[in-house]
Amino acid sequence: MTNEIVNKVAQSSLVVFDLEDYYPEQEAVVLDISQWLFQGFILKEKEFRAALQNFDFSIYNNKLIALTCTTDAILPSWAFMLVTVYVQPYAQMVNQGSVNDLYIAYYQQLINTIDFSIYQDQPVIIKGCSKKAIPEEAYVMATKKMMLYARSVMFGEACSAVPIYKRKK
Rank of each mutant, 00 (worst) to 15 (best):
M1A: 14
T2F: 02
T2C: 03
N3T: 00
E4M: 10
N7G: 07
V9M: 13
V9S: 13
V9P: 02
A10V: 05
S12V: 09
L14Y: 09
L14K: 11
V15E: 11
F17L: 09
F17R: 07
D18Q: 03
D18M: 06
D18P: 04
L19F: 02
L19D: 06
Y23T: 03
P24M: 05
Q26A: 10
E27R: 10
A28M: 12
V30F: 03
V30H: 04
L31S: 07
D32T: 01
S34I: 01
Q35F: 11
W36T: 00
L37G: 08
Q39F: 04
G40H: 09
G40N: 06
G40F: 02
F41E: 08
I42C: 00
I42L: 08
L43S: 00
F48K: 04
A50R: 12
L52V: 02
Q53I: 08
N54H: 15
D56Q: 12
I59C: 15
I59K: 15
K63P: 04
L64Q: 09
A66Y: 05
T71N: 05
D72C: 11
A73V: 03
I74E: 14
L75M: 10
P76A: 03
S77D: 14
S77L: 13
A79W: 00
A79I: 01
A79Q: 03
M81V: 11
L82T: 07
V83I: 11
V83H: 07
T84C: 07
T84A: 12
V85N: 10
V87P: 01
P89D: 01
Q92L: 04
M93W: 01
G97Q: 09
S98I: 13
N100P: 00
N100H: 12
L102D: 05
I104L: 08
I104R: 14
A105L: 01
Y106E: 06
Y107H: 00
L110F: 13
L110S: 10
I111G: 07
N112I: 00
N112C: 00
I114P: 07
I114E: 03
S117D: 02
Y119P: 09
Q120Y: 10
Q120S: 14
Q120R: 13
P123S: 15
V124F: 01
I125T: 06
I125A: 03
K127A: 14
K127E: 12
C129E: 12
K131S: 13
K132P: 09
A133N: 14
I134W: 15
P135S: 14
A138K: 10
Y139N: 01
T143M: 06
K144M: 11
M147G: 04
L148G: 12
S152N: 12
S152A: 15
V153P: 02
M154P: 00
F155R: 15
G156Y: 11
G156D: 08
E157P: 02
A158M: 14
A158V: 08
A158E: 15
A158I: 03
C159P: 08
C159W: 05
V162N: 14
Y165H: 12
K166Y: 07
K166Q: 12
K169D: 15
K169C: 05
